[in-house]
Design a protein around this nucleic acid. Sequence first.
DNA 1: TTGAAAGCGCTAACAA
DNA 2: TTGTTAGCGCTTTCAA
Lengths: 327, 327
Amino acid sequence: MSATMKDVARRAGVSLITVSRVINETGSVRADTRAKVLAAIEALQYIPNQMASNLRSRQTNTLALLLPTITNAFWTTIARGAEDEAESCGYSLYLCNTDDDAAKEARYLEALLRHRVGGLIVVPTAESGPALRRLVHHELAFVQIHRSIEGIESDIVRGDGYGGALSLTTRLLDTGRRRVAYIGAPLATFTGRERFSGYRDALRREGMPVDPKLIRLGPVGQESGYTFVEQLLADTPRPDAIFIANSRLALGGLRALTAAGLRLQQDIAVASFYDIPALDDYSPFMTTIIQPAYDIGRLGVRRLLKRIASKHDALEEIILPNLALAS
Amino acid sequence: MSATMKDVARRAGVSLITVSRVINETGSVRADTRAKVLAAIEALQYIPNQMASNLRSRQTNTLALLLPTITNAFWTTIARGAEDEAESCGYSLYLCNTDDDAAKEARYLEALLRHRVGGLIVVPTAESGPALRRLVHHELAFVQIHRSIEGIESDIVRGDGYGGALSLTTRLLDTGRRRVAYIGAPLATFTGRERFSGYRDALRREGMPVDPKLIRLGPVGQESGYTFVEQLLADTPRPDAIFIANSRLALGGLRALTAAGLRLQQDIAVASFYDIPALDDYSPFMTTIIQPAYDIGRLGVRRLLKRIASKHDALEEIILPNLALAS
DNA sequence: TTGAAAGCGCTAACAA
DNA sequence: TTGTTAGCGCTTTCAA
């Protein structure tokens, strides 16, 4: 069995509470007493029992980040931002990969509730509603990041998907393109709605109609991106530009363009969000926007810690600007 | 404050321990008593405090998985295998992404030691030695997966990198190739050594020398893969085959081949491990082996749980066969 | 500056 | 089948 605070106290010839004060730097301890305690800790290789501490103090330094997948750089960048912020505030952050599976998410949440973690940063999926309501009911602090579910009262930290979509579409229109197609996630999803609105409003500003024949909505993935572009290319007249509202759709779409022998910019213009390095191969010839993934994670944790500190502050929705509009 | 077991007991008109028995299904409880307790739990929305339980019982149902990065499918597949196995055994698994950073790894381990997690599944990096020795010293159970550090006494679960490298190289030789180049991680790394040995032994079996001019060792990444292939192609006589011992190196290398206008199989043969879907684009024309990532995770957890259950069993090194040799 | 006593929420050990 | 008592390792509260 590992050493306890009691063992340290005995060895240092002081009381339990003095050891506690040295470790947590609460209350004042004379320098020589402190030295004795530290020596005993070192000698016994003592490691405080965090659970006992949490139990008694009713506090915890553990947070968790729930991500729907961890398979691409966008999500891992969010994780990194969250970890760094948590770390610098003295918190541990555990990563829970829900794998886009509502049941898995529910199991993680149950475990996290039982563990009495201090709070959660959550990227909700379309089906997270009930789970999040449960968190509200149990008064477990949480922040939704990147996406949010309507009707859930929580802080939100996310990128400006609307603004990004607006800028990208506008950029395409500014270069004289007139048949700007749209490929994106279904409107049932948060980002799907948000980004489509940006596209729509960019067209509206120019007094242009939204042509349903130019719109393709479907599951996010390279395959559908490929198929959608194939479909659009088969149309006459062919679109002269495509705004692809998601990186993975874009990657698939760009491959379809390559397969069709079309040259970017010259034959057809493409704009998309840029999350994944694989797009590098194409990026000199397309317009991209980078989402502030790192800051979404970082500020998500920061907002969560504020929320934990003062439970009754007004809820905030923090919308972070995109990083840059590149060629 | 959330309800405690005491509240449940009072409401159900039974003692604390009866509630405990109902929740943990330990000891026997009459059906009607059990029903009363369950009703009280439901009414109060009671959620057991896992920390109090762990503290008292000196047990925990929490494990952690330390991964060096989470940016590609290989690692996330390992994570999935580990999660599924942990889940099915009633354990929670927290993911810790060390980001290939020894300091970050050390901080996570410190937090995990303090939290008295039940055990760890670790993918060590070259610098993990001291950290792992610390675990041994504190008697925290752990299993090394995918890689292992010499001199650390622990169970190990990994794929057969040696056998994979041997098969792939042999396959290249069997198709009549005679100048088979090698691109891989430095020999200072576990997989670097292992896979190079497989390559070397495949050549030896054919009575062929290892030609240093055909060997390129360096950091794992697309960039170095690209550069190495460029270098090899500049040599005369040019290699007629390349075994690339890592997927990301392979992806970079294949791009270099494409850029040089060489056709796979016809102009030059390539074999590599296959971890990442991006290789799909090339895979019909190259020989690949898939590592048993999911099972590495799954069996890693399984071995860990056995280790936790019986601390003094002999250490095991489990080497899993590769999944298949394709094309 | 230091300590003694109580108790966080739960379960082990023993008893009825 | 059910309950009582003690205590896991720590921090809070109060006292010196």
